[in-house]
């Protein structure tokens, strides 16, 4: 996968050199080849550390929202789910999109957290592991990735598209994107039409598998399933801390708020239900919550399932259009009469 790496590195170098951005946030090599950590790059020499391996250990959008300098111009190398999270954060005034140059990498899934001691690159139906290409076994993928149908970064300024032969093409989605490609002297390529039928079928199959059984359950059994999962919770706050949509500076989950009782394990169900109500309408199914959970609670399954129910009801697709605000903030009297979603 050196081609995609090379192109992304080139783009980053060019953005810094042309002073389009002051800093670039991307994943790169840490201690060794498989140690993937977020990098804050200000010197173009460091661009060579960037890797586009199919592993995505945290939300870079959230990192920039929390720790980025709002007055600086920042370049961001993102996968599509995180690019959607960036849009949601912008809607919530947590990032200044005008100052962000986003480079999206086409993505067919990333590996499960904790299984990354390899060099893994995932393609539509193959996986390259430590240099060897094999047919893709779907259990390599993080659970949320198997349900994903947004492979193409249409919401970023620049889109880096992967070709089956390991090559890649670059496209600009915005004027900022064109400026980036100009700086990098990369000609915009006419994108070949992409047939996502097989991948959408994969997503549907896994949604059916992950949600189907739960949906078939009687409401009280479904509630019981989740309560049993939440029994395992050790209140590490990992799901909240990892979630790019959880942005509140003052969080009602904090013990001093006394909404969720402190001094107790597991925390009351409200801990989970409350967070679900807060962010469920905008979940981008990035899977960071589930990857952060020490106890293996299938957190993203719950959030994604609710999102999938709310999305058609409110005609809301999270993470695409900056102008469309999340249902929670636009809810009308009429909306309150809508039925069809059961939370139990």
């Amino acid at each position: 996968m050196t081609k995609c790496n090379e192109i992304v590195q080139d783009i980053v170098r060019s953005m810094l050199r042309a002073k389009l951005v002051d800093e670039v946030v991307a994943f790169g090599r840490g201690i060794n080849e498989s140690d993937i950590v977020p990098l804050f790059i200000t010197d173009e020499k460091d661009a060579e550390k960037i890797v586009t391996i199919s592993y995505y250990p945290c939300s870079l959008a959230k990192l920039v929202a929390l720790y980025g300098d709002r007055n600086k111009k920042i370049g961001l190398v993102l996968r599509p789910c995180d690019a959607r999270s960036l849009v949601e954060l912008a809607k919530r005034q947590q990032v200044n999109l005008a100052n962000i140059y986003s480079i999206g990498i086409e993505c067919y899934g990333v590996v499960r957290a904790g299984s990354n001691s390899h060099q893994v690159y995932i393609f539509p139906d193959t996986v390259q592991m430590d240099g060897e290409t094999k047919p893709l076994a779907e259990d390599v993928l993080a659970p949320n990735c198997r349900r994903c149908e947004y492979m193409v970064p249409t919401m970023t300024d620049v889109a880096v598209r992967l070709l089956p032969d390991g090559g890649c093409l670059v496209d600009a989605n915005t004027e900022k994107g064109q400026a980036v490609l100009e700086a990098a002297s990369i000609a915009v390529t006419d994108m070949p039409a992409l047939d996502l039928t097989a991948l959408k079928e994969r997503a549907a199959r896994w949604k059916e598998k992950d949600f189907g059984e739960l949906k078939k359950m009687a409401a009280k059994d479904r509630l019981h399933y989740w309560l049993a999962q939440w029994e395992k919770c050790i209140k590490c706050y990992g799901c909240r801390n990892a979630c790019p949509i959880c942005y509140c500076k003052e969080c009602y989950l904090e013990p001093e708020k006394q909404i969720v009782k402190n001094e107790a394990l597991p925390p009351e169900a409200l801990f989970h239900v409350g967070r679900l109500l807060h962010v469920g309408d905008s979940c981008t199914d990035c899977g960071q919550c589930e990857a952060a959970c020490p106890m293996g609670i299938p957190v993203s399954k719950l959030y994604h399932m609710l999102y999938e129910e709310l999305s058609p009801l409110f005609d809301y697709e999270s993470g695409f259009d900056l102008a469309t605000l999340p249902p929670v903030s636009t809810i009308s009297d009429k909306d309150l009469t809508k039925t069809g979603v059961t939370l139990d």
């Binding site: 060794n32 950590v37 904790g114 990354n116 001691s117 590490c236 706050y237 990992g238 801390n241 020490p294």
Partner: peptide
Amino acid sequence: PWAEHPVGEGRLCMKGW
């Protein structure tokens, strides 16, 4: 959390966070 670390595997408890 440090994703590549073999004990935490990208997870932490509250004290760690």
